[in-house]
Design a protein around this nucleic acid. Sequence first.
DNA 1: CCTTTAACGCAACTGGAGTTCCGTTATGAG
DNA 2: CTCATAACGGAACTCCAGTTGCGTTAAAGG
Lengths: 203, 203
Amino acid sequence: MSDERPEPGTVRPGGRTAKVREAVLRAAGDALAEDGFDRLDLAEIARRAGVGKTTVYRRWGTVPGLVADLLTEMAEDSLPRTETGTLLGDLTAQARLVQSTLSDARQGPLFRALITAAACDPQTADALHRFYRIRTEEWAPCVTAAIERGEIPEGTSPAELISAVSAPLYYRLLITGTPIDQPAADRAAQAAVTAAKAGAFIA
Amino acid sequence: MSDERPEPGTVRPGGRTAKVREAVLRAAGDALAEDGFDRLDLAEIARRAGVGKTTVYRRWGTVPGLVADLLTEMAEDSLPRTETGTLLGDLTAQARLVQSTLSDARQGPLFRALITAAACDPQTADALHRFYRIRTEEWAPCVTAAIERGEIPEGTSPAELISAVSAPLYYRLLITGTPIDQPAADRAAQAAVTAAKAGAFIA
DNA sequence: CCTTTAACGCAACTGGAGTTCCGTTATGAG
DNA sequence: CTCATAACGGAACTCCAGTTGCGTTAAAGG
């Protein structure tokens, strides 16, 4: 009984199929940023993308499924990382990047919607975890360099330290609603570095 | 044109009305914890609560509206606060309380659902912000006491410090999916205290 | 260039979340 | 106790998100 058919879009991924995926993911990002996760209608996405709604339902099925695919694509293009020569400098740059992303008129609502979608669906959650694991690994060299320079103790976990910088900003975005401004970013970086120097992030 | 009618349940809040509210909010909490925010159906809530679905739709209208009311009720019963005599002791207790809540089989999913609902609706977001503002204020005395004892510098913002303890744990719950264990809680408290002593949370 | 069929798109259909109607219960005031 | 009406509950209805059927377009292999 080999009635297993491949995922739509995998056998002939060229030309039209790729254009459809690109248009739909772009429309999905726009709609998520504008309306949020729960008000999403796949038919509306199809209309925006100039694509038949049947196609969207057939290839992605559900809103979380579509968001998971969007996250997979977002994980592919990486961010420029600043090298300032000090841990505080590097992590302040990271904090300010997160700050400007989360307070951006499009990106802020988009990230909130992505996290929301992940909270509702295991498959999307996996995609989100992968996305942040990749982003964290991209910043890890800052930490290992600081260890080599002797700024922070050996055994400090890069992932723990990097997360500690972002966490307070996401906490504002999702929990308290306090504005995510540059002082908040600088404080997050400063606090994380101070704690790291004292050995708080040794796994 | 005074065709403004009061919210249902405000004119005769006694007996039956109160019982209905209690039953519905309890059912809503159960359903949120089990199924999550997006799979919520007000008719299902009504069934669980042993109440007509018309009643639920009339009084709360939408899922976010119901969640907002649930948050308002949750904000009313407060938590026992531990007093250990040191800032690290108090904040470790706080971190462990958050840790055990978020990793609890019922409470973890419930909080995730509440935060999700708030991300989808402004009214619910207000209710969530109020909930956490109240919880933060309940813990603030730990911080002011520590300032008086001279453990941390004057001008340290209680809200900033308290948030810094919780943030890494919520970051795990919502973003990375890393397990929320006791070492993580202890590390969060330790890092926050270290940073606070160095003056990282002076507004 | 020709053939096969994956993938798309239109239009008709379906199921269930949310609404409306109206009769019933019981709260709170006098 | 009695009365007016706030609030509840069952059932029928509406509307649209999501599905299905089928004909059309174009990707990939020869």
